[in-house]
């Protein structure tokens, strides 16, 4: 893996998340954690894509990492976790796969040639299911800490390495 290329992508993941964070009008104190979380989640995805060759699994693990980091960030910066998590996972949204799916569907609607039809259908359905599963992986990853700890509020989740006042 080319490390300069990797580091450059790290920055672009963060920049993309910051753009959406500002579009959603987050508090100013949350911008730096969002940048770092998006960059870390994005790098997990890139590393898994490089060594594991599975986009859905990589996205799921990246989103889970962002989900757990958002609980930490919520304790430090006093905002609900999803304020951090939603802007941070948006750079992982599979825009290009959605585009190829749509492009495939248009091509299929114009196609009258039987020999081209099957490979085209194959590609389109693969891209469509990838889009769907990546979107679900993102949503479940963000939600994972709440699912696993079965708490109502992030304030009740005891995080390791973090001092908390007992209630």
């Amino acid at each position: 893996m080319d490390w300069i290329d990797f580091f450059e992508k790290w920055i672009w993941f963060g920049v993309a998340a910051i753009g959406f964070a500002i579009l959603f009008n987050v508090p100013k104190r949350t911008l730096i954690p969002i940048f770092i979380m998006a960059a870390l989640g994005g790098s997990v995805k890139l590393v898994l894509l490089h060594w594991g060759d599975s986009l859905v699994l990589g996205t799921l693990l990246g989103a889970v990492l962002i989900g757990f980091l958002s609980i930490y960030a919520a304790h430090f910066k006093h905002s609900p976790p999803f304020v951090f998590a939603i802007p941070a996972v948006i750079p992982m949204v599979p825009g290009s796969y959605a585009y190829y799916t749509m492009k495939g569907i248009i091509k299929l609607s114009n196609n009258s040639n039987t020999t081209d039809f099957v490979p085209l259908l194959n590609d389109t359905i693969t891209n469509g299911f990838k889009t769907l599963f990546i979107l679900m992986a993102i949503a479940i990853g963000v939600f994972a800490p709440m699912l696993l700890t079965r708490r109502d509020s992030a304030k009740q989740i005891k995080m390791p390495l973090l001092k908390q006042d007992k209630k």
Partner: peptide, 9 residues
């Protein structure tokens, strides 16, 4: 920033 985010994508 939003335009920059799209450029980053």
């Amino acid at each position: 920033t939003v335009a920059l985010a799209c450029a980053a994508f």
